[in-house]
Design a protein around this nucleic acid. Structure first.
Lengths: 152, 152
DNA sequence: CTTGAAAAGAACTGCCT
DNA sequence: AGGCAGTTCTTTTCAAG
């Protein structure tokens, strides 16, 4: 764990919103010299704070109009191997994210599908057929907003 | 909605995993010329498929060791304004994402906190005090894995 | 910590197949 | 559509105040 000053926080805040900005552009925005901004960013990368740049895709424009969050409680019967379940679930192409969680459910999945019939196919033929699956709860995504979070 | 050939898909697959690659680097990887790769990426940007590059932060290294998913059902009493609720919830610094969903819950939040006592503070003093909040369910994140999804 | 400058590389443009 | 060669701009690195 590293500690940041206000300038570091400002850099992170700017980069979390748009990672496509150059060190030079950030320097101008924050009234820093270009080498200073560049060195600070490099320091954060080296410290492992910046884990990577990821591309955000517009799923709807690619024909995937439906996003569903699934909560899954594993079946209690028998010894269920978490590794086997995770292997099976990550092999489903429509699964975008797998969260192992504590609480009412054991896993929380983010799934995309072309439309609701397509989602039903994924649910019935890919998810429900897994022997480990117990209770399932679904939430269909209407809209989402990402926020900077407490770092910024 | 746009349709992609195999080359576009390969480009997206590469970029989803690491958005920090230049058009030239991608061209070499996929046996394309630099201008071709560049033109295709630009075409995808113009079409709105690439909605942006976001920086992924390692929350734990920044001192935020706890991530919790909250499902919130709005209170039925009175007319609850979704806009008011969204305004209040997005003003909480610890909230990283707000999903408006259909199903057992109305909203699904991703929240980060320094530790469990800190999360309890956020839950009690920030979330539960909102008049619109009805039923709440929490899932503490143990581990997560992001996958390319069906586009790649 | 800054400026200035040079080397490297990326982005973009026309022209040609 | 795809590629070649070239120009322009930015990033990155280094040297010096």
């Amino acid at each position: 764990m590293i500690d940041l000053d206000e300038t570091d926080r400002a850099l992170l805040r700017a980069l979390v919103q748009d990672a496509g900005q150059s060190a030079g552009a950030l320097a101008r925005r924050l009234n820093l010299s270009q080498p200073t901004a560049w060195r600070r960013i490099r320091r954060l990368e080296t410290a492992g704070v910046l884990s990577g740049k990821r591309l955000e895709l517009d799923a709807a424009r690619l024909g995937f109009g439906v996003t569903v969050f699934l909560g899954i409680k594993l079946a209690a019967r028998g010894r269920v191997s978490l590794e086997d379940f995770e292997r099976a679930i990550t092999a489903i192409p429509e699964v975008q994210a797998v969260h192992h969680v504590l609480g009412r459910y054991d896993y929380r999945l983010r799934i995309v599908a072309r439309d609701l019939p397509d989602f039903e196919r994924v649910l019935r033929r890919r998810i429900m057929v897994l022997p480990a699956v117990g209770e399932v709860e679904a939430n269909v995504l209407l809209s989402e907003e990402r926020l900077p979070g407490p770092i910024g």
